[in-house]
């Protein structure tokens, strides 16, 4: 069995949520989500429909910091405005799966992308949720993913509810004409699942080699551990080779898993090598 990194397992777990023919939407460059959707398209879900940077029906692309947007556009079937996306997918009940990476998540399924501390005078002002407040309510399946399984992220109560699926229960949602599906939390240790508003997250699966005790110790909200707990599938050789050789050869997906300082250094290194490669491909190389 080839060794794999936690983010590679997480990418594969997200990819498993992409069913063939389903619609997913990506905003800007979020490497983990892009890698997962590309992987799904190249394996079990060739007919899944990915909308990235407004590029509708984009082809699978190789990830890079400077080239992803252009590549998404190059192989797409159409270009849409936000209104077309809003009317058709976001509020049209056609969104299949959405990955959101919040700063805080609590046991109600609420997440915070807005501010740490007091909302009006925050200790840290975060970017905000973009369309996540709508998406979490209207898409079929929601994956909240985090790069660390920690009580600082999986908290008892979020400082601000940027978004929160409510209700979660399938019957209640169906009655109101909403798509049905659970909220999952995906971490480097486990998959947590919530399918009822009034019941805690349960541990759906532990990643290979992870103890339940480690998950409980690092989770700041109540967990239901009574049911059967599975083991998250390890990435297959085929998946790893697609990810490493074709989808993400420079490992941009590691980005979310680094501390701020390493991330900046990594980003600079990626930009430097992408610049050099671009120079080699253009006439500039002849001049130097």
């Amino acid at each position: 069995m080839t060794e794999y990194r936690p983010e590679e397992l997480m990418v594969c777990r997200i990819a498993a949520e992409v069913k063939d023919g389903g619609i997913t939407v990506l905003g800007s460059f979020t490497p983990l989500a892009y890698a997962a959707y590309m992987l799904a398209k190249l394996t079990h879900a060739p007919n899944s429909y990915v909308i990235g940077y407004n590029a509708v029906g984009m082809s699978p692309i190789q990830l890079s910091v400077s080239g992803a947007e252009a590549s998404a556009f190059r192989g797409s079937a159409g270009r849409w405005s936000f209104s077309e996306l809003t009317q058709t997918v976001h509020l049209g009940g056609r969104g299949m799966v959405e990955c959101i990476s919040p700063a805080q998540i609590d046991g109600s399924g609420a997440f915070n992308l807005s501010a740490i501390g007091d909302y009006r005078r925050p200790a840290v002002r975060l970017p905000g949720g973009a369309g996540s407040a709508e998406v979490v309510q209207h898409y079929e399946r929601i994956i909240l993913y985090v790069s660390r399984h920690s009580r600082r992220i999986l908290v008892e109560q979020v400082d601000f509810r940027t978004g929160m699926r409510l209700p979660i229960d399938a019957a209640e949602r169906a009655q109101r004409g909403l798509t049905t599906g659970p909220v999952r939390v995906l971490t480097p240790l486990a998959v947590l699942l919530k399918d009822r508003s009034d019941a805690p997250f349960r541990v759906e699966s532990l990643h290979p080699g992870v103890d339940l005790e480690e998950v409980e110790r690092n989770t700041g909200f109540e967990l239901d551990t009574n049911g059967p707990i599975g083991t998250t599938a390890a990435p297959s050789e085929e998946q790893l080779s697609l990810l490493r050789d074709r989808i993400d050869p420079t490992a941009t997906m590691r980005f979310d898993f680094m501390d701020a300082k390493s991330r900046v250094a990594f980003l600079r290194q990626l930009l430097q090598s992408e610049w050099e490669a671009a120079v080699r491909r253009t006439s500039l190389s002849g001049q130097s």
Partner: peptide, 28 residues
């Protein structure tokens, strides 16, 4: 919320005071 902002521009373009959309669950 981002999708509501699009709805707000659509309402403005039509010279309407508002346009309806479905709720945002438990968002604050």
């Amino acid at each position: 919320s981002g999708v509501a902002m699009n709805v707000a521009f659509e309402a403005g373009a039509r010279r309407l005071p508002y346009l309806p959309m479905r709720d945002l669950g438990g968002s604050e």
